[in-house]
Each structure stands twice: as C-alpha cells, then as structure tokens.
Amino acid sequence: MSKKESAWTRFAAWVNGEHEPAESRLFSMGMGPRKERRPEITLPKREEKQRLHGFLSWYPVASAVIGVILVGILLATVLAMPSFGQVENPTNNEVPAHYLQHTREETGASNAVAGMILNYRGFDTFGESCVLFLAVSCVFILLLRDENNTSQKDLEQAQRREQRRKRRQDVILQEAARLLSPFILLFGAYMLLGGHHSPGGGFSGGAVLGGALILYASAFGQDAIRRFFNEKVYNTVRVIGLMLYAVLFGYYIFTGANGLENHIPLDYGGLILPIDIAVGLVVACTMYGFYAMFTRGEL
C-alpha cells in the first residue's frame, strides 16, 4: 500500500512538474551538437528588390487563379448534385421514411431531428459532448492560473485590471444585462426542456445558457457570478452532465435500443429530455469556461 501511495505521489509530483522521472532523458528534449551556421547569403540590393517585386506581382495573380479554380470545382460539384427535395433523389429511400414515420413511437420525440441526433445517433452526440469536455479541459490546462504559473507581477496586474474595471463600470451594459439575462436564461431553459417537440435541444439551449452566463459575467464581473457558480460547482455540473449522458445512453443501449422492447416510458420525450439536459449542461459549461479562461484565467 505504501509503495503504491509513493508511486502515486511521485506521479502527481511529475504531473505538477516538481519531479523528474528516472529515465529523464526519455522525456526531456536532448540538445544535440550545434549545427554549423550556414554562411549568410547576401544578395546585391537591386537584385533582391527585383526578386521581391517579381514575387509580389505574381503572388496575387496566382492566389486569384487558385481561388477561381477552387470555386469552379465546388460550383461544378454543387451543380452535378441532384436538386434539393426531388422525389427521385437517391437519398429519398426507406430510411428517412422509416425515421419520419416511427420517430414518435420509438423515441417519444415529435421533433424528428431531436429523435435522430439524441436517440438513433446518440453515440455520435456523445462523442461530440466528449470533444467539448476535452476541449474545455485542455483550455483549462493551458490557461488556468494557479500557484505554479502565476508570478507576483501577474497577480498585481490582474488586481489593477479589476480595480480599473470597478472604477468605470459600463452603465449601458449593466442595465442591459440586468434586463436581458433572466430572459435569456429562461429562453435557454425552455429550449433545453422543449427540445423533443420544438426546435432547440441540448446544443443550442446550452449555448444560449452559456451566453447568458457570459453576458452576466461581463457586465458585473466574475466575482458576482462566483457567488452561485464557482469552480467547484462548475466542475461538478460539467462532470455530472457527461456522466448522466453516458449512464442514460448506456442503459438505453443495453436494454435494447432501436425500437426493441425497453422499460423507458416514452411520455414527455422519453430518453430525449434527460439527455438534452445533460448535453445542455456540458455545452453551457464549455461556453462559459472558454470565456472565463480567455478573460482572466480563473473561474
């Protein structure tokens, strides 16, 4: 047990950059022997000017030609495709007909798009949620300020910036945020909860929720939003969203997906509604996390 613990502490120290692994040359960049510098080529000035002039004259022409060729290829492709919405199109086969007919009774969603992305293609959406989760985690790794990468000077600068922000608060922004952000939050919640029978759903509803949080934070500062949405709450919500999705969809798959018998009641959107909420939580946290990391490097 003690050996395992010491291995764990060593690993943690290595992650924090305080401890070098035993085979340090495996992980550190080696310094090879210095290469001989090439003797500098000095063109005569006039010649260089001429060369530069020639380059600058053919560069726009070449880029324009390449762009026109690319646009031509794309336009030819679009024109060669079958026109939109025709009956004899190859995409108009029994698959979309089945989806349009049976979405309601198989998934409980009257919005066929929601039934498609959250139920039939649920794995796809799960992958996208994981991508968002990982993206915001990577931004955290790069930009989050903690005691290891913040110097005293940075802290003082941040404090000065905060004081400057407090000195000249934007009245228009604050009043607009005070008026608008409750309604934006309400609309986001409506889109989240009604995604199975009206346009909206997890991604757009979550983005609207995140937008409301961003508006509130940019108007009143992050101290105001930290009263109810600090780092602990943020991480909890984000992880719970993804885990909720994984557990629900895993349960759905293992009890028989795609119209097989399962125990999930299909009233009120069946599985779509909780999955929508889970995706919305992840997306809202992602949006707000990007904003917080880019502005101040802390939640």
Partner: peptide
C-alpha cells in the same frame, strides 16, 4: 430552425465574444 438557433447562439454570439477576447 434547429440550425438557425444554433448558428445564432454559437456562430454569432459565442464565437464573436471569443474573437474579441
């Protein structure tokens, strides 16, 4: 409308804010 809402929220709102930041 699904795409419209997502475009308005993500493409117009959040992307622009991130660009400004």
């Amino acid at each position: 409308p699904d795409l419209a809402v997502t475009e308005a929220a993500v493409g117009v709102g959040v992307t622009t804010i991130l660009f400004f930041l």
